[in-house]
Computed example of a mutant assay.
Amino acid sequence: MTQPVFRFAPSPNGKLHLGHAFSALLNFRAAEALSGRLLLRMEDIDVVRCTPDYEAGIVEDLTWLGIGWEEPILRQSEHFDDYRAALGKLEELGLVYRAFLTRAEIKRYVAEFEAGSRTWPRDPDGAPLYPGDAAVLSETELAERRKGDAAYALRLDMKAALRELKKPLSWWEGPADCSKAKNASDWYLGREVVADPAAWGDVVLARKETPTSYHLSVVVDDARQGITDVIRGRDIFPATSVHRLLQVLLDLPELRYRHHELVLAEDGQKLSKSNFDTSLQSLRSASVSVQIIESRLLKNP
């Protein structure tokens, strides 16, 4: 078996919290246990919210946790041309279209639909599936947006994409915590999960002002960095269906996936940068030791 390659890929748009620490530590411990490599990637697609100061804070936090990685750090903002190339390949296959409805228009359409005691389909994250421009806009309105300067999203035509598949889609799902494995071979005991990308509808791959989305960039980046094993939060588990589909469409390697349980706040909600949950920086300032953090996360996540 080839040497496993892991990665930790935070977004430098805020301070790391305990949930990030848990994911980083699991990747680091797995790389150590399996004589693998650990890479660091900054998912800084949003060049406005992501800043050098936040990136420096992430590096400082990871260093404090005792986590090491191979240089150089990959930054998504330096690889926009790669995402455009991948998007171009999907466009050549006839799998991408411009979608002009705004979020407000989608929300209003779905609200009106559901006012009649009907339920509009939603993706695994709870967002309504895209209804299609023609469901909301007249031919005249749509023509004006196409020839004008209207904002748009580039969406994957899911039905067309699924027709490209030559066999059923699945992925390998294994244990997320190598500390629970009695030996190295236990780490590779997994199961096949049937993928269901259709549940996501026509996902966004890019926008007019942004050359990529998370779904597209993550599969391109993992392939570019030679990642073999992905350890990430359980909240991303459903999105793996989309990632496997894009890997097949773009002829990219299939990876091994492991999704860990989330570290929750006291109210049972997922930790969030936007909610100003306890950051590693504040814990360091309060003289909380790394040992205490590791004990809480790795023994009782």
Rank of each mutant, 00 (worst) to 15 (best):
D125G: 10
V194M: 14
K180L: 15
V136R: 02
V5W: 05
V288R: 00
L26R: 00
E70M: 09
V59P: 02
D267C: 14
F8K: 05
E60V: 03
H243N: 07
P52I: 09
N13L: 02
V218W: 06
V110Q: 05
D277L: 10
L246P: 04
W69M: 07
R207N: 03
R122C: 07
W172N: 05
W200T: 03
D186E: 00
L250V: 09
I58R: 04
K180E: 15
V110T: 04
G190D: 01
L142V: 08
L271K: 13
A195E: 13
T51G: 06
E78G: 06
K159E: 15
P52S: 08
H79R: 02
E43H: 00
R224K: 13
K159N: 11
V288G: 03
P12S: 01
K208E: 15
Y188A: 06
H243D: 01
M1T: 06
S11H: 01
E192D: 15
Y152T: 04
G132M: 03
Q247I: 04
V219E: 01
S285V: 13
K15F: 13
A134R: 12
R122A: 02
P175T: 00
A99K: 13
L249Y: 09
E55C: 11
N183F: 03
D202S: 07
D221M: 10
L216P: 09
A134D: 15
Y109H: 09
S213N: 06
R258A: 14
A135H: 05
L255E: 09
S287H: 08
G36V: 06
D222P: 12
L246Q: 05
E70T: 09
H243E: 02
K273Y: 07
G226F: 11
L38S: 01
R284T: 08
G19A: 07
E105N: 04
L189C: 11
D186F: 04
E55S: 12
W172V: 07
D53V: 13
C178G: 05
E43G: 05
V96K: 13
L280F: 10
I231N: 01
L95P: 09
D82L: 14
M1E: 14
L90N: 04
G116Q: 15
E266S: 15
S289N: 10
A184T: 09
W171H: 13
P168W: 03
N13F: 02
G190F: 04
R145F: 11
I231E: 07
S170C: 13
E43R: 00
R75P: 09
Y214N: 05
T63P: 07
L156R: 04
R244H: 05
V219C: 11
G57S: 14
P238V: 09
G66L: 10
A9M: 06
Q269S: 14
A143I: 05
A21E: 00
K167Q: 15
N300E: 01
G148Y: 05
R207E: 00
S11R: 00
P4H: 01
L169T: 14
R224N: 11
K166W: 10
A86F: 06
I292C: 09
H259T: 06
S138Q: 06
A223K: 07
E78P: 07
A239C: 10
R108N: 14
I236K: 00
H259C: 08
S289Y: 04
L34C: 03
W172C: 10
L87E: 00
Y188K: 00
A184F: 00
T119M: 03
G132W: 03
R118K: 14
E32N: 14
